[in-house]
C-alpha cells in the first residue's frame, strides 16, 4: 500500500472515497488530504482534514472532514499517516463531526471520544427561503446594498483585511487566501459606504449545487440594519435563481447567526451528529 498526498491534481482519483463537496476544497491553503493506493495505484481510501487556527496565537487543531477506507489495514495506515502529518503542523487536537454511526465507531477505535448532539448546521430549501425573501418584497433595496458582481478586487481585499484584523472569518479559516471568484457573486451581497465594503454575505455553491453562506458580517454604524438588508437581498436572489428544492446549509457558528436562524426558521433543528475529539501530540 502506498500513501500519497492528495492535491488539486490527483483529487479526482479519489472520487469514490471523497464526496465531491469535500473534494472541491482540496487545494485550499489549510485543507489537506492523504490517500491510500493499492495494487496498480487503485485508490483504497482517503482522509481529508482542515488545519484550524493556523498562523495565529491560538492552539492549532485539525478537523477531519472526510474519512473512508476499504478495509481495516487501510484505515490504520491512513490514521497513522494522519497523526504524523498533523504532528508536523503542531496540532494539539483532532476534531470531527459526523452523522454516520459506523464512522464514529471507527474513530472511537483510534482513540477519539465522541458525544451525540444537535449539529450546528441546519438545512433549509430554497422553497423555505421564500418567506424570508417575501419580507423584502415591495420594499426598496437601498442603493448601497449591492451584488458582489459589482465589487472590485481592491474593495474585496480591503474588506477581507478588516475582517481578518477583527478576527471575523465566518466558516473560512483561509479567508485571506480565497479569491472573490470562489463565491457565487450574483447571490452574494454587500453594503458599501464611501466606496468601501462595510458588510457582506458571501455564499459558496458546492458541486452538489448546495448553497453555503460562508461569511456574514458587517462593520460600521449601521451594521445591524445592514446585516438584515444584505440577507434579504441574497434570499431574494437565491429564490429568483435556484429551484425550490436546492439545499442551503447554514452553519450556526455564532450566537448572531443562531439568533437569525431561530427567528427566520423557527423550529428548525440540526441533525443528530457525533462530535468527537482526540488530544494529539
Amino acid at each position: 500500500m502506498e500513501l500519497v498526498k492528495i492535491t488539486a491534481e490527483n483529487a479526482d482519483d479519489f472520487t469514490e472515497h471523497i464526496d465531491a463537496d469535500v473534494r472541491c476544497n482540496i487545494g485550499r491553503s489549510f485543507f489537506k488530504g492523504i490517500g491510500a493506493l493499492g495494487d496498480n495505484y487503485a485508490p483504497l481510501g482517503a482522509v481529508v482534514y482542515e488545519i484550524l487556527n493556523y498562523d495565529s496565537e491560538a492552539d492549532t487543531k485539525c478537523r477531519i472532514h472526510s474519512f473512508m477506507a476499504a478495509d481495516d489495514d487501510t484505515a490504520k495506515a491512513l490514521m497513522e499517516e494522519y497523526s504524523n502529518a498533523i504532528a508536523e503542523d503542531g496540532a494539539i487536537e483532532s476534531l470531527y463531526e459526523t452523522g454516520d454511526e459506523n464512522l464514529d465507531r471507527i474513530f472511537s477505535s483510534y482513540g477519539f471520544t465522541s458525544k451525540k448532539r444537535e449539529s450546528p448546521e441546519i438545512v433549509v430549501t430554497v422553497g423555505e427561503l421564500q418567506k424570508v425573501a417575501a419580507m423584502a418584497k415591495g420594499k426598496n433595496m437601498p442603493e448601497y446594498i449591492q451584488s458582489m458582481t459589482d465589487v472590485s478586487l481592491l474593495q474585496y481585499r480591503s474588506f477581507l483585511k478588516n475582517c481578518l484584523i477583527k478576527g471575523r472569518f465566518g466558516l473560512l479559516e483561509d479567508l485571506g487566501y480565497l479569491p472573490l471568484a470562489w463565491f457565487e457573486r450574483e447571490i452574494s451581497s454587500c453594503s458599501i459606504a464611501d466606496e468601501k465594503l462595510d458588510g457582506v454575505l458571501l455564499i459558496r455553491r458546492l458541486p452538489s449545487q448546495t448553497l453555503v453562506p460562508c461569511l456574514f458580517t458587517a462593520f460600521g454604524i449601521d451594521y445591524q440594519k445592514n446585516l438584515v438588508i444584505i440577507m434579504l437581498r441574497s434570499a431574494q436572489k437565491v429564490v429568483e435563481m435556484y429551484p425550490e428544492e436546492t439545499r442551503v446549509v447554514i452553519r450556526r457558528h455564532s450566537p448572531g447567526v443562531k439568533q437569525l436562524t431561530d427567528k427566520f426558521f423557527a423550529g428548525k433543528k440540526g441533525a443528530e451528529v457525533f462530535v468527537g475529539r482526540r488530544a494529539e501530540g
Binding site: 487556527n53 493556523y54 498562523d55 495565529s56 481585499r157 477581507l160 483585511k161 481578518l164 484584523i165 477583527k166 478576527g167 472569518f169 483561509d174 479567508l175 485571506g176 487566501y177
Partner: peptide, 11 residues
Amino acid sequence: IYGSTRGLMNM
C-alpha cells in the same frame, strides 16, 4: 497593526 493577524500578512 493591532488585532488578529491571521492570513493578513499573506494579503
